[in-house]
Design a binder for these strands. Structure first.
Lengths: 150, 150
DNA sequence: TAATAATAGATACAAACGCATATATCTCAC
DNA sequence: GTGAGATATATGCGTTTGTATCTATTATTA
């Protein structure tokens, strides 16, 4: 199928997803705690706090954050010099680097994370019912899987 | 309601929305035509092409793109010097500026836009059914309205 | 209406970004 | 094992970004 109405639906649904992300993100950026960290930097700390082993390769971090590899590399530099993350060479592949949170990094992530979660609750709960959030979760996960699978 | 499961659902649904946007956006950035324009610059041309009067105030542009006011101001500088947009002073408020596409800007937006739409079709159609896209559209619009309404 | 505050946009400057490329290590064919 | 290509990360450099601030114009209030 490829009618005008169908094309319209397809682009509109993507447009709306994008705008929703921009709108909510702009709201998050008002969070005062993010002033001392930046939302992308928080994203890195968050990713590290979530992974099972506690360590991620640089290129794995790259999958989560919308930045180029060199930018992430230098961002890790900065976070490292602030004592929030640490680098560790990988035994089985000496080209690679593992990134992990320091104790200070864990603390900062938790502090900012708590405020962030409250903010998310606030926004999402006001906007959507549980059932709607469940549906949104299913659809966006499906979208992700489909793109990654290409 | 504020159980652990509920908090989890709330943050997960936002996380997934964010990741889906990052994943799809990364895919879009592969589009060769965007090399000569940048996805945020395209976003500006697109916004101008969509508005009914053909002209937007700088601060209105700012609502659409995730950039600060000074960044947009300078981005318009660049697009202007490339002959893609034009500035016009507002009669009823001489502080303000109206931004509009030039003929060349319209042409470029259409050219890049066509490729972009095809790319969107490709990604969204593979991932979701029409019914699912409709649902996604409804939910993300609801989310936007709720946030803006604050 | 004069004085004060608020708003729209532009500019200076340091920090952060992307592109191209360098370096180091690994993989695989021969 | 040795050389060619692939992969992981780092670095040089010009461009773009955000924060703070400035100018110009409009709104407010006394």
């Amino acid at each position: 199928m490829s009618t005008a109405a169908h094309r319209r639906l397809t682009t509109d649904s993507w447009e709306s997803l994008l705008r929703a992300q921009v709108t909510v993100m702009r709201e998050f950026n008002k969070e005062p705690l993010l002033k001392e960290l930046g939302s992308r930097e928080y994203d890195v700390l968050f990713s590290l706090s979530r992974c099972s082993s506690g360590w991620l390769r640089l290129n794995e971090l790259n999958d989560h954050v919308l930045l180029t590899q060199p930018s992430i590399s230098r961002m890790v530099d900065r976070l490292e010099s602030r004592g929030l993350v640490q680098r560790k060479t990988v035994e089985e592949d000496k080209r690679g680097v593992l990134i992990g949170l320091t104790e200070a990094g864990v603390a900062v992530q938790k502090k900012v994370g708590r405020a962030h979660v409250e903010h998310i609750q606030d926004i999402m709960e006001t906007a959507l019912s549980d059932e709607e959030m469940r549906t949104l979760l299913v659809l966006t996960e499906k979208l992700q899987r489909s793109v990654r699978g290409n």
